[in-house]
Design a protein around this nucleic acid. Structure first.
Lengths: 138, 138
DNA sequence: TTACATATTTGTAATTATTATAAATTTGCA
DNA sequence: TGCAAATTTATAATAATTACAAATATGTAA
């Protein structure tokens, strides 16, 4: 554990984020649980490790992480903001039956002709909705 | 106006939605204002035409329209659910400075290898964030 | 046309996520 | 050790959405 904690501290520092205990634990959790968690699920798990943890801190930390490109916000359904520690471009699939959200490997879509010139792009997001195989087979 | 109202009634009927006055006016508004409006902006405009209009009706109607594939929900930023009357696949660009949301023509992205087999897709969404030319040039 | 059952709309209250705020705590440094 | 700045925390305020039940409108059978 010691060594990976060191790694997380370094990642935060490299991104320009001061590594407090809360921030390290939150980043650790995101790194090791690739479930695209919500604010609430992050809080529910970590309040066990840090009993004084406040949900406001989770909100503040995720906002800070986003500003420093450490995470990306995933908004597929209203009322369900999730976070992804993988910041490289990739797609998501959300099963409308079981609600699971999974990563999807896709080719980076190509803008058609003049559209490229009309703005400067900083982020691209792609997601699908449907029914996963597990839910289809029962 | 009479003739386009007839068209809207027909579109709703074809989709299996009973055409009440509220539903027709809301669909009319969406069709003629391609600004990806929010619930609130739809309500603010239409309450002038239908003084008794309730925001609950707008919520109910948009939910019904979604269930009947008449509109698509566009969720880019948390706390800002928008709606799009164009249901064919296309992308969106959101300017992070002025907040404008515009359509983007893109090639439909391709799933890579095995991903296709893992689920049944019903909807695909693609969006970009960045800065539009107008905001860049001032 | 009238009466009635059903669907739709409406207004209000309840719920929930998020943000604002200020006090308390922690941290790093002189 | 003492102090200033940053961070965390708890509480209150805000705002979007949903639940719910009453009121209204609609369509149909007699």
């Amino acid at each position: 554990m010691g060594s990976s904690t060191e790694n997380f501290i370094q990642i935060l520092k490299n991104a320009g984020v001061k590594p407090s205990i809360q921030r390290i634990k939150i980043y650790d959790f995101l790194w090791n649980n690739r479930t695209h968690p919500t604010i609430d699920s992050i809080f529910q798990v970590l309040v066990n490790e840090i009993p004084t943890l406040s949900k406001t801190t989770v909100y503040n930390t995720m906002k800070l992480f986003m500003e420093h490109q450490l995470v990306r916000m995933v908004t597929i359904d209203e009322s369900e903001v999730r976070f992804d520690v993988v910041t490289q471009f990739h797609g998501h699939f959300k099963c409308e039956v079981c609600g699971k959200l999974m990563d999807v490997e896709i080719e980076n879509p190509v803008l058609v002709n003049q559209a490229k010139l009309d703005f400067e792009v900083s982020e691209a997001h792609y997601y699908l909705k449907g029914i996963c195989n597990e839910c289809n087979n029962n």
